[in-house]
């Protein structure tokens, strides 16, 4: 059941990944390593938040399929 909505999420996560990588690279190039690490961590958390919803939906669907309520 892959609709255009779920493909959008893939692109969104990919975009965030690219931008976070770029930002952390910039921080690293100006010797601000701690900021670079924080940005990476923030990116991971943001993406996790997006994905957790979808994973929750997945589990709900699995339950429904096997009729575990």
């Amino acid at each position: 059941m892959i609709g255009s909505d779920s493909i959008d999420i893939v692109f969104q996560v990919a975009g965030i990944g690219v931008l976070v990588a770029a930002i952390s690279a910039i921080f690293k190039s100006v010797d601000k390593d701690e900021f670079a690490n924080w940005t990476t961590l923030a990116g991971v958390i943001i993406i996790l938040f997006i994905i957790v919803n979808k994973v929750g939906e997945l589990f709900a669907e699995i339950r429904q399929v096997f009729l575990i309520h």
Binding site: Q12, G15, I16, L19, V20, A22, I23, I26, F27, S29, V30, K32, I46
Partner: peptide, 17 residues
């Protein structure tokens, strides 16, 4: 240089979010 690049990148990040 950092701020010159960081501004647009942060903007793009928020837009994508």
């Amino acid at each position: 240089k950092m701020w010159n690049y960081l501004g647009p990148l942060l903007g793009a990040l928020i837009v994508v979010l």
